[in-house]
Simulated assay, not measured.
Amino acid sequence: MSSSTSRMPLIDMVKGMACAAIVGHHLAFYGPMSDIAHPLAPVLMAWLYDYGRMAVQVFLVLGGYLAAASLAPQGLARFDHAGNAIAKRFVRLVVPYAVALLLSVVVSALVRPWMEHPSVPEQPTLSQLLANALLLQDIVGEDALSAGVWYVAIDFQLFALGVLLLAGVKALRGAGARGQADRLAQGLVVAGTAASLWVFNRMGTLDMWALYFFGSYGLGMIAHWAVRAPQGRQAQGWLAVMVLLGGVALALDFRGRIVVSTVTALCLVLALRSERVRSWSGFAPLVQLGQMSYSVFLVHFSVCLLVNAVVSHLWPDSPVLNALGMVLAFVLSLAAGRVLYLRVERHVPSWTTALRWQLGLVGAGMLVAVSSHWA
């Protein structure tokens, strides 16, 4: 999800639209403003509540596409050391992540005394803070400190899984020609995608592991290789593989999220194989939103929580004012995301920076918890 490198405008536009859908979904899902404003637009609220979260599948596909572009544009890993690649990804993800979680802890403490609502996170514990800082909250059974935190953990798992798979093939490269190694790496990604779509994604108890989501991520990786393939049978072959993977998955168990993933991957290939589309500068506001989408994704829950608390407290019975409050929360989320992007995300972080912010999250979180307890 990170937008630290230059990307094609179309990809940033798609990310921008998906980001807007996620923010809209959380505004509809986490009240109380949406509960009060619901009568004004019940169809829109219901759609955002039920289907807005499907935009996560778009991010999964794009994540796979961008991972293939950076790690193995032709199938064979171009990085030298798997550990370094994984470590760099972790650091880049967790620095803005820790900043956003710290903001969530502070905002939750501020609104907790005067807003009783299920959307307000409980006072954090030390084990919860540590688990969230290390992206382990769902695995160890701790509550998340903010909405959408699970996705950051899954994104890191998927990237690490892709790196390890590609690194394993690269280590065997001496046993065969380069072309054979490329095909082996791509074949393993296709096999992993099939296993996820056809088996693991149908097992809800696995939804805290990368295997559950690798189907969508793998479709994105395959989409990149399809875009790079020369005209003719090879490009058609990749499209056929994608259709087969998605079609069999839906025949086995129809899931709306897999429809979104498959359609997104196929449309990505068809669009980016066009020179006209690749050279298009895009719609500037959406391109900018896509570039800072990770920061917006991280920080929007805290903004929405604060606006929810203020508006619902001052005007608890006004649908119009609460609807305007939702619009205000959306706009402020974009503004806060831009600040986080400019001040934190776009700068290349170091291990020292990451450790400082993680320790700051845990220490400040415990300080807030103790202060709230004695208040």
Rank of each mutant, 00 (worst) to 15 (best):
L134K: 01
L206N: 14
A223E: 04
D155F: 14
A194S: 05
G218F: 05
V199E: 01
M203S: 12
A98Y: 11
R89E: 08
L206V: 10
H81T: 06
D155T: 13
Q180G: 06
G174N: 07
V199P: 00
L206K: 14
A175L: 14
H81A: 10
L206Q: 12
A133W: 11
A87T: 03
Q137A: 10
V189L: 04
T125R: 14
A194P: 06
A167K: 09
Q123I: 10
L110G: 08
H81R: 15
A181R: 00
K170W: 00
V94F: 03
V120Y: 09
R202E: 09
Q137V: 06
G162S: 15
L136R: 04
W150L: 06
A181F: 05
P96F: 04
A167E: 02
D143V: 08
V152Q: 08
P96S: 09
S119M: 14
E142C: 03
A153N: 03
R92K: 14
A177L: 03
S127T: 15
A194E: 05
A181M: 01
L197R: 03
G220M: 07
L103W: 13
A195D: 05
T193W: 01
A223Y: 05
F214A: 09
M221E: 00
I86K: 04
E142Q: 15
V149I: 09
W150T: 02
G215D: 02
L161Y: 15
H81Q: 11
A210I: 09
D80H: 12
P96L: 01
W198S: 08
V105F: 00
F200P: 07
I222M: 15
A191G: 07
M208G: 11
P113V: 11
G218W: 10
V190G: 04
G218L: 12
A167M: 06
E122I: 06
A191Y: 00
A147F: 07
L135Q: 03
L129I: 07
E122F: 12
V163A: 01
V111N: 06
L103V: 15
S104E: 02
G174R: 08
S104K: 03
A131P: 01
A82R: 13
G83W: 15
Q123V: 12
F90T: 09
